[in-house]
Simulated assay, not measured.
Amino acid sequence: MRIRTLICLFLSLALCTSVLAAPLRLVTGDDYAPFTGKALPAGGMLTQLVRAALQRSSIASSLDWQPWKRGYLKTLQGDYDATFPYVRTAQREEVFLYSEPLFTAEQYIFSRAGEVIELDDVPSMQGLRLCYPLGWQPPPIIQQLLDDGQLRRHSPTGLNECARLLLMDRDDFFISDRRLGETALQLSGVPLERFRRSNSAINRSTLHLIVPRSHPQAAVIIAQFNQGLAQLRASGDYQRMLERNLQQSEVAAP
């Protein structure tokens, strides 16, 4: 019995190694600065982080860029092995395994200067137009307001467009991580004084690499990726990578 167990363990490990010997097929989306973006150095902060973690685990990878919704669906269908960065939702957890957090994001409300929008004043939000990119999952409290018909959602392809739509008075506010929102506003080319950020974060969420549960080596991929990510953190490279990218994003605006 012991010999049979050892043989099964050996075959299992051999199978894992052979599957992961091929480059891991990654996909992410554009216009998510400073986290991901075709025009960003090495594809953005979290693109660099994901590939560095895989390298620490000796896993080669390829990367494709797709519209967010398409990349998500193609990963679920098996055309890609993994996608990133995604927040946890109950619906996604039914079909995906999540890595350890890549980054903890704090989400704020961004509106035009002089237009105070705070989550603790829900009545004032009645009928407002929320700009939230296609494929993004709103924070639970905002989703409830949408479901109740208190907010109207407009879903362009990226956050940069939300900043422009605020300036055009086409939408009233958008919600994003502080760094994402400020980068989008800077890229609009107008002074930041023309915008307002809410006084407090309305939500805190973690961003992850996700692998379909239907993938034959999903658990192995997640385990090895987490191992590489832990090594990045332990070495200090994780923090240095984040600080370098965030500093670059603060000075890159026109």
Score class of each variant (00 low, 15 high):
Q137A: 14
A113P: 06
P140R: 06
A105M: 08
M125Y: 07
S124D: 05
L102K: 08
E118H: 07
G114W: 09
S99C: 15
E118Q: 10
Q107G: 12
I117T: 01
S124W: 06
F103C: 10
S111M: 05
D121A: 05
R112E: 11
S111D: 04
R112V: 10
I142K: 01
A105L: 07
V95Y: 14
F96I: 05
F110P: 01
Y108V: 04
R129L: 04
D120R: 12
S124F: 10
S99Q: 13
G114T: 05
L145D: 00
S111I: 03
I117W: 09
V122E: 02
P133I: 02
P138Q: 03
D121H: 10
G135P: 09
L130I: 04
Q144S: 15
S111K: 00
D121I: 02
E118P: 03
T104C: 12
Q143L: 11
E100Q: 15
W136F: 15
W136K: 02
E93L: 12
Q107C: 12
E93N: 14
E100R: 12
E115S: 14
V122N: 00
Q143N: 13
L128M: 13
L119R: 04
L130S: 02
Y132E: 03
Y132V: 01
Q137W: 15
P138R: 09
I117V: 09
F110A: 07
Q144L: 11
E106G: 05
P101M: 09
E115Y: 12
F110W: 06
L102N: 07
P139V: 05
C131E: 00
L134N: 12
I142A: 00
E118V: 04
R129M: 03
F96S: 07
Q144C: 03
I117C: 04
I117A: 02
R112L: 15
Q107H: 14
A105G: 06
L130H: 02
I141R: 08
G114I: 01
L128S: 07
R112T: 14
E118G: 09
Y98F: 15
Q137E: 14
G127R: 05
L128C: 09
G114M: 08
E93M: 14
L145V: 03
S111R: 01
L134T: 09
I109T: 00
A105S: 12
P140W: 06
A113L: 11
P123C: 03
E100L: 13
M125A: 08
Q107A: 13
L102E: 07
A113R: 10
P101A: 13
L102T: 04
P138F: 06
L134P: 02
L119N: 02
R129F: 06
S99W: 09
